[in-house]
């Protein structure tokens, strides 16, 4: 059964900025958008410790609907921890984190409800190996959102179609390639029809020839207006779809700029040496 209808949730190109809008006035739009609506994600003075070690140090970050934010920085700079705070896989100890209008605290009895609005894609895919691709995609909508099976399956097929692997619906994760697994993981997250998508180094564990298919999927998602926060070192991707690059080091945001400025003329010495490391091989 392969339904031909496309998923309804705000992913049609019609309801979203066109690709030309991307290419042109990105820098100016950045400032204008920021004033227009309240941010979908807001971090204020966020700090986190592992024991005595301070992993995050007074972070402040706003992300507006439709924005694509690239988080980069050296290993251990706190970028993964930062996005993991946003669906509370990690907890902060100081400051406030607000996601989709709800402040994340220990009191969130309905943390599952917040997580349903925030999709996440992991470095190591984390598909459920005992379930088929289709079952992976329908599990959460059926359990969390109580979507009837037929509807969940139709939606899953539409998203699998979107990531261009509907033919794999009946396969198990152990039978498909890394790039395909990551595209399934993206489809699985999209099946919850999230307002925000978090990507935690989605291409770092992939063989080089599989990186492109995953990045292409992410670019297409970005073009459709999805709010995205990506931890990635794929500089081409960052340049192509990023509205902002947030450069982190030692738990702090060192520099925030448009990709053009950040990659061509980084303001801080730390960013310059980091970028120097990236291209030195």
């Amino acid at each position: 059964m392969i339904p031909t209808s496309s998923p309804e949730a705000g992913l049609q190109p019609a309801s979203t900025p066109t690709s030309t809008a991307f290419a042109t006035s990105r820098g100016a739009a950045l400032q204008a958008d920021a004033a227009a609506s309240p941010p979908i994600i807001s971090m204020r003075e966020v700090s986190k410790w592992y024991g005595d070690f301070r992993v995050l140090d007074g972070l402040a970050l706003d992300v507006h609907a439709g924005e694509k934010v690239i988080l980069c920085g050296p290993s251990g700079s706190g970028k993964s921890t930062t996005i993991r705070l946003l669906n509370r896989l990690e907890q902060h100890q100081k400051g406030t984190v607000t996601v989709c209008g709800i402040e994340l605290t220990d009191d969130n009895r309905n943390i599952e409800a917040i997580r349903a609005d925030v999709g996440m894609v992991f470095q190591h895919f984390n598909l459920f190996p005992h379930l088929t691709v289709l079952e992976n995609c329908v599990l959460a909508p059926m359990l969390v959102k109580k979507v009837p099976r037929a509807e969940a399956e139709a939606r899953a097929m539409a998203y699998l179609d979107r990531v261009k692997i509907p033919q794999l619906a009946g396969q198990y994760p152990g039978q498909i390639s890394g790039g395909q697994k990551q595209r399934v993981a993206i489809a699985r997250a999209l099946c919850m029809q999230p307002k925000v998508m978090l990507f935690d180094e989605p291409t770092s564990a992939l063989d080089p020839e599989m990186v492109k298919e995953v990045l292409d999927t992410m670019v297409s998602l970005a073009r459709d207006g999805m709010t995205m926060i990506c931890v990635t070192h794929e500089m081409g991707f960052a340049r192509d779809v990023g509205d902002r690059v947030v450069f982190m080091d030692e738990g702090r945001i060192v520099e925030t700029d448009t990709p053009q400025h950040f990659f061509s003329a980084p303001k801080t010495e730390r960013a310059r040496s980091f970028l120097g490391q990236l291209i030195s091989h």
Partner: peptide
């Protein structure tokens, strides 16, 4: 990673365990 994916998808503790 399995627990993390299940948490990130919004599954409750019982659902994570059972499914």
């Amino acid at each position: 990673g399995q627990y993390e994916a299940a948490r990130a998808l919004g599954l409750s503790r019982t659902q994570r365990l059972k499914n």
